[in-house]
Design a protein around this nucleic acid. Structure first.
Lengths: 158, 158
DNA sequence: CGTCACGTAACAATAAAAGTGACGTGAAAC
DNA sequence: GTTTCACGTCACTTTTATTGTTACGTGACG
């Protein structure tokens, strides 16, 4: 089963954009992340359309944050990427005529919906700035120069 | 993103095995489900190893339930299939050296873990027999000949 | 002992994602 | 105004995962 890691990549990029505080080109970002620049540009299209980052052409062009990380909940990034569904499993035929299959699929779908709601609640409760703060907490010596750190987010909510 | 529907298929088969109350060969099941018999046998290997169904060779062989549906929570089927992870998204590199990436991946993984816990709780709370009851509730006229129906499971828990 | 059906391995076909090259467009630099 | 840069996007290739298919061994039943 192949898993999509665009969300992970997007968060990583947003954090680096904030750290650099500058516009960065996809040609620089590609090697940094070990990805093809074209693939990155494809991924960023959604983030740009969602207003999370800006893109500029020509000299001095590239990508930059459109707003502070504190105003970007993880769920906004999740939505911006337009991931069809977060699950690797799904009912075989949501509109099956067989009643037995229907009953199975209906309950399976309900369970998946509940799980997705949990995921979304988690992503809603944390901003990208919280991740930056968590990173600073991991290595206070190196990166403790970006303003007062917010209290590290509770790493394990109930 | 490709989604796995083996869980849906497995539940469907278990329900039909119960309805037929007999051993069924993969060559009969394949066309019924629009799947290749070999693929079904591959899928059933896990269910057999987990003790959910029995398989017999030769004349009169095929697959049959190893125990009543009431003793099979959906989570047992889920586990028996050995689905690596229920999610289509994942951190890009769980052991990243970049602290920013680490922070992002750690939180993403925690959110995914929470969602999986929700999914598992749902699958634990329902047995395959509950699905059969739900199917009977959908069409009381047709299939109401398999004993008294349990109350239909609450379709939307909090 | 012949047939049936599982269990598996090896291989082909298919499909999805990623990588690649090319080109148009707008913006800045010169 | 022309050159250079970098995005945006298309078309195409490569890669990888899953599924389908064929084949064959093994045990069970008649």
């Amino acid at each position: 089963m192949k898993r999509d890691n665009r969300l992970s990549v997007a968060l990583h990029v947003l954090l680096h954009l904030d750290e650099l505080g500058d516009t960065v080109t996809s040609d620089r970002l590609g090697p940094m992340l070990g990805m093809n620049p074209v693939v990155l540009r494809r991924t960023f299209a959604g983030l740009r359309d969602a207003g999370l980052l800006t893109s500029g052409k020509g000299h001095g062009g590239g990508y930059a944050l459109a707003r502070p990380l504190r105003e970007i909940p993880l769920s906004a990034v999740y939505d911006a990427l337009g991931l069809a569904a977060p699950f690797a499993i799904a009912p075989r035929d949501p509109d099956a005529t067989c009643l037995l299959e229907r009953a199975a699929n209906d309950h399976l779908q309900a369970a998946l919906d509940a799980a997705e709601a949990t995921l979304r609640a988690r992503l809603d409760a944390v901003t990208v700035a919280d991740l930056a703060a968590a990173a600073r907490a991991l290595a206070p010596a190196h990166l403790a120069h970006r303003g007062p750190a917010a209290p590290p987010p509770d790493p394990e909510l109930p």
